[in-house]
Design a protein around this nucleic acid. Structure first.
Ligand SMILES: [Mn+2]
Ligand SMILES: [Mn+2]
Ligand SMILES: [Zn+2]
Ligand SMILES: [Zn+2]
Lengths: 144, 144
DNA sequence: CATCAAATACAACAAAATTGCATTAAGAAT
DNA sequence: ATTCTTAATGCAATTTTGTTGTATTTGATG
């Protein structure tokens, strides 16, 4: 099923209307991930009001359509695992580029084990890597 | 070396003054971790102004004395690995309790490997587990 | 197409974070 | 110890971010 069809299905199943605001925000999220709220609001300028963006995102979070992910100490929004495969992020502290790190069975298993040991019934987890991408790393080394 | 001596050493090495505000914030951070900014500001009431708390924390972050960690979609502040052993967090979505998950060689090695594969020269990483603690999990199950 | 509730825009508000500046105090100089 | 210098602080004002109230609009339904 393609993304928008799934979105419609989820909205209908939850007795929510399919509106211009909701479709606009959804398509923005599909275009680039993850995004800061400010960036989504900017992308909606003229189309959807600031307040409505917040309300759409609240709904989407409640319905599990989006999730908040932490990039550095700020959060950004991205589509949930129902739309994107489970993954983690590797962020460059130099240029801000965010790369996806795809699921790795060994790692996920280890995280499961860890959570069991910690006494937590884990429902989700977040792993973020920080450092410098090849380009930024090279630049840094070349500086005198 | 005990914590405050290390703090003083770092401040002096960076030509920063040792002030009442900086010591107060530092000791609050030592008392409990991790803490929301609001909680630090509250802990400083009457002692240090709100604005100064922000400025002290900015400095501390720049100097690597504290780091921001994400608990849910909000960040909290805790002392850096120079003061605390490297660890991760397991947070209960029910009651908000945060447990420390101590470093695990196997996991850390795997994360190193992962970052290498992603092409990032990793300088740090964050792993957060979310779920329900034993008490909250039991409560949830007992609900009709 | 008529109906009706849900969703939206806009204004007002509240909370969180930042900036500008006069005053204070930490550390250096004497 | 006292004076000097400037970084650090407190306080007021401002900006930014997020929320709430409500009249109007819009999407679903028959
Ligand atoms: Mn992503
Ligand atoms: Mn911690
Ligand atoms: Zn980069
Ligand atoms: Zn709990």
């Amino acid at each position: 099923m393609h993304d928008e069809a799934l979105l419609r299905k989820i909205l209908i199943a939850n007795h929510q209307k399919i509106t211009k605001a909701r479709l606009t925000v959804f398509n923005l999220l599909r275009s680039k991930e993850p995004q800061a709220i400010a960036s989504i609001i900017a992308g909606c300028k003229g189309e959807v009001d600031r307040v409505s963006v917040y309300r759409v995102l609240d709904l989407y979070e409640k319905l599990g359509i989006v999730k908040r992910v932490n990039i550095g100490w700020k959060y950004k929004i991205e589509l949930s695992d129902a739309f994107l495969d489970h993954h983690h992020h590797a962020s460059c502290l130099g240029c801000g580029k965010v790369m996806s790190v795809m699921e790795n069975g060994e790692l996920e298993a280890l995280i499961e084990k860890l959570s069991a040991k910690s006494g937590l019934t884990m429902t989700s987890h977040v792993l973020e890597l920080y450092g410098y991408c090849y380009a930024c790393d090279t630049n840094t080394k070349n500086r005198t």
